[in-house]
């Protein structure tokens, strides 16, 4: 198991977990979503092959209404 910080909250996830799996488990839509790990963007093309490590800080974002 891995302990990571997902959108500001400490959570435990299975190892190995790819970004694709994480996004899928969050039930996030695939379009209009972006992911950063440790303040680095992980492009969609690498979601399948990017596996998370212990203590990673992950941001999964989407677009919201805003000025």
């Amino acid at each position: 198991m891995l302990e990571v910080v997902l959108n500001g909250e400490v959570v435990t996830i299975e190892a190995p977990t790819s970004i694709s799996k994480l996004v899928d488990e969050l039930k996030a839509p695939t379009n209009g979503v972006a992911v950063a790990v440790n303040r680095e963007i992980v492009p969609r093309s690498k979601w399948d092959t990017f596996f998370l490590s212990d203590q990673d800080a992950i941001e999964v974002v989407t677009i919201f209404q805003g000025g």
């Binding site: 959108n7 969050l26 996030a28 209009g32 974002v61 989407t62 677009i63 919201f64 805003g66 000025g67």
Partner: peptide, 16 residues
């Protein structure tokens, strides 16, 4: 639009 954390609990979530 703004960029905010994805939150599966929100009804009016992403506007995409």
């Amino acid at each position: 639009v703004a960029i905010r954390r994805f939150d599966p609990t929100l009804r009016d979530g992403s506007i995409f």
